[in-house]
Design a protein around this nucleic acid. Structure first.
Length: 667
RNA sequence: GCGCCCGUAGCUCAGUGGAUUAGAGCGUCUGCCUUCUAAGCAGAGGGUCGCAGGUUCGAAUCCUGCCGGGCGCGCCA
């Protein structure tokens, strides 16, 4: 609701300034630091003052005096050196916020509405998922929820690199190190914890390869077999990667993360996506065959230099230094090349399509599809053809992502290039203490580092399932300790799960994207302070009030609630400044979900929403301690407190839902 | 060497042009459960916003330089 009023204010100010001063200045608005300064403020008079060469305060006064009434705004004041402070109509805002919260998310998008694609997770299918992968998946999933909430049509993809070196390494391990037959591997793959088996094997293979470099030839051969799809290696790669993908999906199901489509690299190869892309790239001159120099025989893409063109002819342009190899001199395509082809498909720019089959049913019933080389399920939705793409990929891959964007641009698809967004985030690392706790040997040169990198290759990291198990155990212990009466009641298991997942998702979301998360069990296992369970607990408190209220409240209370919503009760009595400021501030915060969702989307920063949920829970807890709701003697005020309480619950539940966190009835 | 990110309270992090005292959580100390769940609340203590210049009516926030840390720059993915 806040955003709607703010938008009206911006529009009115822009219009007014244009009319009155025949000029346009950026109409920026912000939240004043104190509620005594109103709900929306604008420093625009400072900018206007420069243009008109008039004192800002005088301009602000003029505008305040001449501005026409704005719906939802009670008054305008001038403050400081020339701020415009706008004060909301408190009762109107409260009623509108309640009404809006009742409506919920934006309407369903039309089936042919522009599509936003989010690619996330994309874990190599050769080992168990670890904490770093969870950050990716939780960020991507939350961002997708935000996009959907705002009314966009969203398609979530998970890229499966089932023909890459990482899978090849594990296959190599089964073929050479173990060794195991195809049937033995098939049996292993069907057993539980196959991802853990591969986790260890992958580490061993890495060591084995490091011990004797000549073994790298085995790997090259294995990789080639897999890419070309023949022999035991290819069959084994299919078995291993498919089984591991199922492991990953089971893990991510525990966090409530769904996918629409798993796009597999093997199909990009089999269905010749690259060949089609290669032709386009050559035709448009987006890539060149290097005739000489260190890249001789390679097809390279010239990246637009970020330096200015060197002035007045000195300094040879360092030509090939900026070139990125797309096709190697042996004719094979690099990862980036395949990625360009894949992204052409994402935008519907490639005249090829995958075949599709049903792959996995999520616990909520949602169907995840997989690409397929042959079979085609007629029930498959129409995938691809996005107008906007977000790739959730860690910040270390910024460069290859730029190459893909440059590729699209070089092909003449400037609009698509602009619509391809690298949703970049920093990695999860381990604190040295945590690494030691896990029993990893830390080389002395790493010991004084602030954090130790997570490495699937070294087998160094916190496995996702282990962490979730630990959180569940801990959540159960804590719940039984704090509220023994809940133990063993129906739904107890679900509650414990919700608390564990709430703690985990919140932990991963509270950091902004550019922050390296130095993982530590102590922080991640916390249920107090700025955590998911803190927010869940606020909802549980409201639930308690509602339950108790059902037994205590009478018909008059029910009638009063209706009179609150219709505006018959003058809520201004309780919300007027200064005595009513504390209630009013909670109302504003509860009514600010729309603004925070908007900010989280605009900044591509789910952390903004996590913070909002916490702030609202915190504000509610203060309110809860200050006002005893059910025993409030003034019946009209009691109705107001009750309505406000349920508004807070609606918004908290909505915010938690966007964060992928469930709100239990009790905990 | 070039590029990107980071440096804010003992610790972990928000804030990245604007408004007296720069915020939150954790940790420390002091209070508060016979009243709607104490996974909570109230209070105390804790800061040369890495350093030095500059722009501005105004800088943690913008610019330049320096110091310290991380990452990237491959015929790997």
């Amino acid at each position: 609701m806040y955003k709607r009023v703010e938008d009206r204010i911006r529009k009115a100010l822009r219009h007014h300034i244009h009319e009155r001063y025949k000029t346009d200045v950026p109409v920026v608005t912000e939240r004043p630091p104190k509620s005594s300064m109103g709900e929306v403020a604008s420093p625009l008079c400072f900018e206007l003052a420069k243009r008109l060469k008039k004192p800002p305060r005088a301009l602000a006064q003029e505008i305040a005096n001449s501005l026409k009434p704005i719906e939802g705004v009670a008054r305008v004041e001038v403050a400081g050196g020339g701020y415009l402070n706008l004060f909301f109509d408190r009762p109107a805002f409260f009623r509108a916020a309640c009404e809006e919260a009742g409506r919920g998310a934006a309407a369903e998008p039309a089936p042919n509405a522009p599509k936003t694609m989010v690619e996330h997770t994309s874990v190599n299918p050769n080992k168990a998922a670890h904490i770093g992968h969870l950050r990716n998946a939780v960020l991507g999933d939350t961002f997708a929820r935000l996009l959907r909430y705002s009314g966009r049509r969203v398609e979530v993809q998970n890229y499966i690199d089932n023909t890459g070196v990482q899978v090849a390494d594990v296959v190599l391990g089964f073929l050479r190190l173990e060794p195991k037959s195809l049937d033995q591997v098939r049996a292993l793959a069907a057993a539980p914890k196959f991802d853990y088996v591969c986790w260890d094997l992958y580490t061993r293979v890495t060591q084995w390869l490091a011990e004797d470099k000549s073994r790298l030839d085995f790997r090259s051969q294995t990789l080639k077999d897999i890419e070309e799809g023949h022999g035991d290696a290819a069959n084994m790669a299919e078995i291993v990667s498919t089984a591991i993908v199922h492991c990953h999906l089971r893990t991510l199901d525990r966090l409530g993360i769904d996918y629409d489509l798993l796009s597999r690299e093997s199909e990009i190869l089999r269905l010749k996506f690259w060949d089609a892309a290669f032709e386009l790239l050559k035709q448009r001159g987006a890539i060149q065959l290097a005739g000489s120099g260190k890249n001789a025989g390679c097809w390279v893409m010239q990246l637009p230099s970020d330096k200015e063109t060197p002035a007045e002819g000195e300094e040879e342009p360092t030509e090939l230094a900026e070139a990125k190899i797309i096709v190697r001199s042996n004719g094979t395509v690099t990862y980036v090349g395949k990625d360009i082809a894949y992204h052409l498909w994402k935008f519907g720019l490639l005249e090829r399509d995958f075949h599709y089959r049903r792959f996995h049913k999520h616990p909520d019933g949602h169907e995840a599809w997989s690409t397929d080389a042959e079979s085609d399920d007629p029930g498959a939705p129409k995938f691809g053809h996005a107008t906007e793409v977000f790739n959730v990929i860690d910040s270390r891959q910024a460069y290859p992502q730029q190459v893909v964007v440059a590729g699209l641009r070089a092909l003449g698809h400037a609009g698509e290039a602009d619509s391809l967004k690298h949703f970049s985030y920093n990695v999860v690392a381990l604190t040295p203490r945590c690494a030691r706790e896990l029993g990893y040997e830390i080389p002395p040169e790493d010991a004084k580092k602030p954090y130790i990198e997570v490495s699937g290759r070294k087998g160094q990291g916190v496995k996702a399932d282990d962490l979730i198990d630990r959180l569940i155990t801990s959540a159960q212990t804590e719940t039984e300790k704090r509220h023994p009466e809940l133990a063993g009641t129906p739904g107890f298991h679900e509650t414990v799960n919700a608390v564990a997942i709430g703690a985990l998702r919140y932990f991963l979301l509270r950091f902004t994207r550019s922050t390296v998360i130095a993982f530590d069990f102590e922080d991640a296992l916390s249920f107090e302070g700025e955590t998911g369970p803190y927010v869940q607990y606020a909802v549980v408190r409201v639930n308690g009030i509602v339950r108790k209220g059902e037994g205590r409240l009478n018909d008059t209370d029910a009638a009063n609630l209706l009179r609150i919503e219709s505006g018959e009760i003058d809520v201004m009595k309780y919300m007027a400044a200064p005595a009513g400021d504390d209630l009013w501030e909670l109302v504003v915060l509860a009514g600010s979900l729309d603004a925070r969702v908007e900010a989280a989307l605009a900044g591509q920063e789910p952390a903004f929403l996590a913070r909002y949920a916490f702030e609202l829970a915190q504000a509610f807890n203060v309110f809860y301690h200050k006002h005893h709701i059910l025993s409030e003697e003034d019946a009209e005020k009691r109705a107001l407190l009750l309505r406000l309480t349920s508004l807070v619950r609606e918004q908290l539940v909505a915010a938690l839902g966007l964060l992928g966190i469930k709100a239990p009835e009790k905990m």
